[in-house]
Nucleic acid binder design. Structure first.
Lengths: 341, 341
DNA sequence: CCATCGAATGGAACCGGTTCCACATGGTCG
DNA sequence: CGACCATGTGGAACCGGTTCCATTCGATGG
């Protein structure tokens, strides 16, 4: 293929001048610049990013480590990251980090370290101290989305607070028999989101002085998971709670479908709240605490770029808490027998 | 950082021997090989893929061009591609191709061409002749998922046939008032999937000699889209069809939810079929024609790898039709008044 | 008027690997 | 026993850029 030497020859200048003309660095006269540009266009020249990276040490490529791409939150975050990176002129190399430990090690040692990425964004992946040290020793900025990791910047919502807030919303409506339909505490993501969202509800109930035996049922973190779980929970009229705090909107939506299936009206017979702001929430009238994963992805990129372009060495580690917003729809009301205020 | 020259020095061999020892190419004695490996481990050496790519011309990196990551089909395909690529020791660079024409051109000219990828997989993106020529001139294999493109290999299901088949399923149950709830023909993806799935239904109806005025309503290709569309279509008892062929499972699921909302029983009062095999289909009892996007992604990678590893020049372009499978669940039955055979 | 400086350019080193080629050695075969 | 070949190793060129350094030239200024 055509190399910069060909361009230089055609334009009648040296390699170095051609390089300067095309990259815009250093002194080049207007005249030679257009001459070089014309020559480049004539032979369809494109820089080899490999060669450029080799000498500059920057790849203009960011690695994204993410456990799923087919779940709402992760897909949205990924979209946010992708848009922001493209906008900044960076490539995005995707590593889906399966739970498989061997594969995980391979991805780190084999892929991420090979000087192919300038930075890493970890989405809901708790990097080990070893992994962090490895990347840091290579001078690569890292940002974590979804949870704090020692020694690196991170960005997430406050999951405990989110869940407590939604529970307080139900309490304020007069509910006292509240249950959490959330993720399995043993199978949760690295940052213990499942535990935190359960904890938030319990904090709220404790603060209100409400007993809460039998307050939790573990289900898969999906719509079918919430559906199956809710069928079981709502099936027995005797022990039925008057309100459900779902671990996420997927679970909440599954629960709404299950309730309808059982002929239980939402919100009259059971109130249901979610956390997330899933794009199906509107359709199901779900009251939820919206978070904005696209913005989270964009913010992570912004933090990465600050670090990459900052001359004054690595910045301090930041802890950014991302905003959430209560969206009240039609899935919550006062429990039967209690007047709405 | 440590370069291969450092390893060589430490091991007391030449650069070339060190390279051979670490890459496994060429003759190296067992003894020196372990010596070099030990030296490499001692100083934490990792190859620079940039340097290697520069000289070999292979990047071990595949570009994936995809319009969405937050829709079921695309997320599944992406997952299939990612797994297969990691397994083959390749990286995956993701380009989400927005409808924005300027950005699209930028992605091609600026990103894809810069010798950073060995091959390209296009998911539901109709590359222009110019784009194909560009990539081919660089010797990069391309595989298209989701539709045929002149001059390159492709892999997809037969969308017309799929839709015709599902319509025939409804016809065989005795339905005659069948309607298509599908994607907007003007806003469809590059490969006219929307048109094809509409066409399939019409072919089946024509073949059965059934008149089908007012047989189509365009809706967004999502669950809320199907929901809203079905509310409108099913709302009027007079003109209500006895069966709906949805353009995809998302639309079908939205329609099922809408029907339940309206108090219309599925399948007794209206049968609904989808196409896709969405992971919510089971929960909603949806009869659908399953396709297997994860397999499609894996197959695409396989085709790419064949081309990359084949010594005997570029292979011929292939047209692979991927398998589908009818999954009958509880959303279809004979129309009211017609005995089930 | 000569020193100084900025603009413009070319030459050459360099980034970190891979690979071609030359050379040495020892074993096998005709 | 010489030819040949497989094995093993080092030297050097090369991939395609970027950047440092030296050089030239014209303008500025003391």
């Amino acid at each position: 293929m055509s190399a910069i030497a060909d361009v230089a020859r055609l334009a009648g200048v040296s390699k170095s001048t051609a390089s300067r003309a095309l990259s815009g660095r250093g002194y080049v006269s207007e005249q030679t610049k257009t001459k070089v540009e014309r020559a480049a266009a004539a032979i369809g020249y494109v820089v080899s990013s490999n060669a450029a990276s080799l000498v500059t040490g920057r790849t203009r490529n960011v690695g994204v480590v993410i456990p799923f791409v087919n779940r709402w939150f992760f897909a949205e975050v990924l979209e946010g990251i992708e848009s922001a990176l493209i906008g900044a002129g960076y490539d995005l190399t995707l590593y889906r980090l399966s739970p498989n430990a061997a594969l995980r090690e391979r991805i780190f040692d084999y892929f991420l370290v090979r000087k192919r990425v300038d930075a890493v964004i970890a989405v809901d992946v708790a990097l080990t101290a070893h992994e962090v040290a490895l990347l840091k020793s290579l001078g690569k900025p890292i940002v974590s989305i979804g949870g704090d990791i020692d020694g690196i910047s991170s960005l997430s919502i406050d999951d405990v607070r989110a869940s407590r807030f939604m529970t307080e919303h139900l309490l304020s409506l007069g509910h006292t028999r509240i249950m959490h339909l959330g993720g399995d505490l043993n199978e949760q993501m690295d940052f213990r989101v499942h535990t935190q969202r359960l904890t938030g509800m319990r904090e709220a109930l404790d603060a209100a002085g409400i007993e809460h035996p039998d307050d939790f049922r573990a289900v898969p973190y999906t719509i079918p998971g919430g559906y199956a779980g809710a069928l079981a929970v709502l099936g027995d009229p005797g022990s039925r709670p008057t309100a459900i705090v779902a671990g996420c909107d997927e679970i909440a939506i599954g629960a709404i479908v299950a309730a309808r299936q059982l002929g239980i009206t939402v919100p009259e017979q059971v109130s249901i709240v979610g956390i997330d702001g899933h794009n199906l929430a509107e359709m199901f009238g779900l009251t939820t605490l919206e978070q904005y994963p696209v913005d989270q992805g964009a913010k992570a990129v912004e933090m990465i770029m600050e670090r990459l372009t900052s001359d004054r060495g690595p910045l301090e580690d930041e802890r950014v808490t991302m905003p959430v917003h209560l969206k009240v729809r039609r899935s919550t009301t006062a429990p039967a027998g209690v007047a709405v205020r």
